[in-house]
Write a protein that binds this DNA or RNA. Structure first.
Lengths: 229, 229
DNA sequence: TTTATTAATGTAGATTTCACACTTACAATA
DNA sequence: TATTGTAAGTGTGAAATCTACATTAATAAA
């Protein structure tokens, strides 16, 4: 019985994470200042190498956890980047993942220690290797996914206002949306719970808080879900 | 200057191709009967290993060409599969690609020699490893891509009838479409050339042949393209 | 009590989608 | 050459969805 494909070449496999967060300033990504060569000191996506007995999804989870302290985060594999010299040190194929996190939840200590920082997506610095491409692709995928699955909620705190949700979608799609039309479309999906509680930060009147109702959503999934904004 | 990330583990990288074709029997995939261990004699996707100085896209092109003799084929990377024991011989991560080919164009000799065969997508045999998953994912992606880009034309001969186009879309989406509505939607895109020539195979009356007008399409791309069938 | 600020809400016109059936052109056959 | 059979080609009206748009409501602060 064969126990190796001896003739084939082996390569390094890396995982790079595009970590999206959202707050009142808009959509952001978490970047890190590399503390090793090459490109030490330059900005980079958060990444690492796949281990021998590790599945790619687990590597992505491990890396995210290392730098943010977070678990149970929405992640999705995006694309494998394989240009020969993309990493000047050694042939490395990198698989990108995107993650959606609630920006208020991560471990501030950790990201400080790692010299990580949040950047508004339009003000991100130049990144090493092909990481800028990865980010652009991730944004595209985020837009697409947002239109077919309500993953946007992953980026918000558990309780949120309609305005926050609206601003999140505006940030993701980078276009203005009509408030009334947006609200009625969201309501027609019937996947939110309107709470009795109000958020009084934003105005005198206060705005109702909502939570995402995952159960109702799962029910609906049997049918199709399309969100056309 | 660093010249290796010495601590990291290396792995084998494979490429597996989901090759779609279309003829009067519907949508098909090209499968191969493995002639090496393990799983010799079982049906499998067409694949191979990534070479040291090769980009993934090129590996996919090389593999497709080896088995079909074709060049200049529409291909797209899909997903990296990394379960630890997906290949029992050795840890192998496989990146899947899908290809769309005009089923009449490939080299019959070649595929015969390689024991390759076309299977209607609903009658495909059980495949080795995780290849059935790969196929299912590829079909999903094909459906999606079809709705946002006119890639369906890649599967047809250069000149085709409206009926062929209709049947292609029905096969991809696996649902019936209304002939009149389909035709008027396609026409409203204004990306086809209607030829004076008719195809007389299918009926006494004969049906007009069309070609895909790539230039007109590229123009339109500046705006958005959505095909909602 | 007045004022300032943001939240909440509905409608009408335009556009798009969908369902649906008859006529036409031609080749084959009698 | 008249008849027949077959798939091609074509348009409309009703329903659903999308879009643009402006006023009132609730509350805290002054």
């Amino acid at each position: 019985m064969l126990n190796s494909y001896s003739s084939a070449d082996k390569v390094l496999l890396a995982v790079d994470c595009i970590i999206f967060g959202f707050d009142s300033d808009g959509l952001k990504i978490l970047l890190i200042q590399r503390d090793f060569e090459p490109e030490k000191g330059k900005w980079s996506l958060i990444g690492g190498f796949l281990k021998r007995d590790e599945v790619l999804d687990d590597a992505a989870i491990r890396i995210l956890n290392t730098y943010t302290g977070l678990n149970d985060i929405y992640m999705e594999q995006l694309y494998a980047y394989s240009e020969i010299d993309r990493d000047p040190v050694e042939r490395t194929i990198s698989v990108s993942y995107f993650a959606l996190i609630n920006i208020e939840n991560h471990n501030e200590e950790l990201i400080k220690n790692y010299h990580a920082e949040w950047f508004p997506i339009n003000e991100a610095p130049h990144l090493i290797f092909d990481h800028n491409d990865m980010v652009q692709n991730a944004i595209k995928r985020l837009r697409y996914k947002t239109s077919i699955k309500p993953i946007g909620f992953e980026l918000l705190p558990e309780k949120f206002t309609m305005r926050q949700l609206l601003e999140l979608y505006e940030a993701i799609l980078s276009k203005e949306l009509d408030k009334r039309n947006f609200i009625s479309k969201i309501n027609s999906l019937e996947i939110l719970n309107k709470l009795d509680e109000k958020d009084m930060q934003s105005s005198r009147k206060g705005s109702y808080l909502y939570t995402f109702n995952k159960e109702k959503y799962e029910e609906k999934l049997l049918n199709d879900f399309v969100l056309n904004l």
